[in-house]
Computed example of a mutant assay.
Amino acid sequence: MKIISSPLELKEQLKEVHKTVGFIPTMGALHEGHISLIKKAKEQNEFVVVSVFLNPTQFLKDEDLDKYPKKDEADKKICELSGVDILFLPSADVMYGEDEVALLAPKVRGYVLEGFSRPSHFNGVLTVVMKLLNIVNPTRAYFGKKDAQQLNLISLMVKQLFMDVEIVPVDTVREKDGLALSSRNAYLTPSHREEALKIPSSLRTASAMVSKGVLDSKEITSKMREVLAPLEIFYVEILDREFNQISHVEIGNTVILVEVKVGTTRLLDNIWL
Results as ranks from 00 to 15, higher is better:
Glu195Ser: 12
Thr205Gln: 08
Thr189Cys: 04
Gly178Val: 15
Ser207His: 03
Arg204Trp: 02
Leu197Arg: 05
Glu166Cys: 09
Asp164Asn: 15
Gly178Trp: 12
Glu175Lys: 13
Arg193Asn: 03
Ser183Gln: 10
Leu161Ile: 09
Gln160Ala: 11
Asp177Ile: 13
Arg193Pro: 03
Tyr187Val: 10
Lys146Gly: 09
Arg174Leu: 12
Met163Cys: 09
Asn185Ser: 10
Pro190Met: 04
Gln149Leu: 14
Leu151Asn: 05
Ser202Ile: 00
Ala208Pro: 00
Ala206Gly: 00
Glu166Val: 13
Lys145Trp: 03
Pro169Thr: 07
Tyr187Met: 09
Pro200Glu: 01
Ser155Met: 13
Leu188Met: 09
Arg204Phe: 00
Asp164Lys: 15
Val165Met: 11
Arg193Cys: 04
Phe162Ser: 14
Glu194Gln: 13
Pro190Cys: 04
Val173Glu: 11
Asp177Phe: 13
Ala180Trp: 07
Gln160Gly: 01
Leu151Thr: 05
Ile154Asp: 03
Phe162Glu: 12
Val170Pro: 06
Glu195Ile: 01
Gln149Phe: 06
Ile167Thr: 06
Glu166Thr: 13
Ala180His: 08
Gln150Asp: 08
Pro190Ser: 06
Pro200Trp: 02
Gly178Asn: 12
Ala208Val: 01
Val173His: 08
Ser201Asp: 07
Gly144Met: 04
Thr189Lys: 14
Asn185Glu: 10
Val158Tyr: 03
Ser201Tyr: 01
Met209Phe: 03
Leu153Ile: 06
Leu153Pro: 02
Asp164Phe: 10
Leu203Phe: 01
Lys159Ala: 14
Tyr187Phe: 15
Ile199Tyr: 01
Glu166Ile: 11
Met209Trp: 00
Leu203Asp: 01
Ser182Ala: 15
Glu166Ala: 15
Ser207Val: 00
Lys146Arg: 12
Ile199Asn: 00
